[in-house]
Design a protein around this nucleic acid. Structure first.
Lengths: 205, 205
DNA sequence: ACCTGCTGTGAATCACGGTTCACACCAGGA
DNA sequence: TCCTGGTGTGAACCGTGATTCACAGCAGGT
């Protein structure tokens, strides 16, 4: 029964607009319209458009990182975990391409860009940690985990988001190719089958 | 003696401004000031700011791709060529970080972004071709050359441009780590020494 | 009932930066 | 010399989109 507070409504509306039409189209007017309020209402809750979007990006990032960590935690073996994480990431990105593009690639203004940078950094840190463990255990060849992790983040972003409108290889095949790529990148033998993913919990009850 | 035509002067000025302060700072006013002309002069030679910058990006891209291909052509073995190409790319990017960031990553407006996309595509195509040859010769494991190439482009961009202001590992070490990363990514054994580069021709006589 | 503070409204305002234009200036040809 | 076309000038113009603000409504407290 309890009505959703306007601040929350705005964040959700902003995400919907971005997911549907990209950051370009996410003007203050569009967002407030989507949220069903007037433009001025936004400024009762956020000091600026940038601040609202920083919030949006943070929320989306948190959700993505949680999914990544869930997939990783589902495996004991660090390499399996890594590949499972990749698969999750790729699957989610392909399912919501517009949102993924906004999160990874689209031009955004400075305050929002800072949030995006933070996301990438955390993303990289999570991967680097697993790689380091695997190297220490001797499961992977010696390497600089930070660099490898950065490379992985960049490679996925490029493959998943770069050619958005390209020949629409079905998701299945693309993910498979990406996993092979990632396995080589970290120096692991090619996995014979796609690593299993944890069950997806309900996201908006 | 012959005076440089204004059109050329504008392109060069625009590149200088971008290289020094990033695309953000490259307003029409700044560019014309740098070129030593009034703002209106720009429109005698280009229909819009976007058109001028498309030109700038094209010029820089061509130069970069030429360097890449020169490095590749310097080796008979496709894998050596690939790694030499990477080394060239990385070295150049680290030498002109601001320009590299603009070319690879910075938010630019639509018409310019199109040019950037074209650059990435060509970049990828060049790499993919070498990878395919190497795979056909049995020097690399079976893989989708396009995807691997895209991954390489993304990975380099991320590593070289992403953490711009991070702990300034000296270029030497960073390039070394990148080459190892690339070797693994394509599935080659780690090279024992950095691949040799062709002599750099004079660029602005 | 009467304050009072919080929230929402949406047209007006403002800042920013690209683009235009009326006015020179100059070189070369008639 | 007198045109004429090409070029340069820079202040004014204009579109866009974020931000403000004077004016309500409304809930809770006295």
């Amino acid at each position: 029964m309890s009505t959703v507070p306007t601040a929350t409504r705005l964040v959700e509306a902003a995400e919907r607009v971005v997911a549907a039409h990209g950051y370009q189209a996410a003007s203050v007017k569009a967002i407030s319209a989507e949220a069903g309020v007037a433009t001025g209402a936004l400024y009762r809750h956020y000091p600026s458009k940038g601040a609202l979007f920083a919030e949006v990006f943070r929320a989306v990032s948190d959700r993505e990182l949680a999914a990544l960590e869930r997939a990783i935690a589902h495996h004991d073996d660090p390499v399996d975990g890594l590949l499972a994480g990749l698969a999750t990431f790729a699957e989610r990105a392909l399912r919501a391409p517009r949102l993924a593009r906004a999160l990874l690639d689209e031009p955004v203004d400075a305050p929002v860009d800072a949030e995006r940078l933070a996301y990438r950094r955390r993303h990289r840190a999570v991967l680097a940690e697993r790689i380091e463990v695997a190297v220490r255990r001797g499961a992977l060849p010696d390497q600089d985990p930070e660099i490898t992790a950065a490379g992985l983040v960049g490679a996925w972003a490029e493959v998943l988001v770069g050619p958005l409108a390209e020949q629409p290889t079905e998701a299945e095949g693309r993910i498979r190719a990406l996993i092979d790529l990632a396995a080589r990148t970290v120096g692991a033998p090619p996995p014979s089958r796609t690593p299993s993913l944890p069950p997806t919990p309900e996201e908006t009850p």
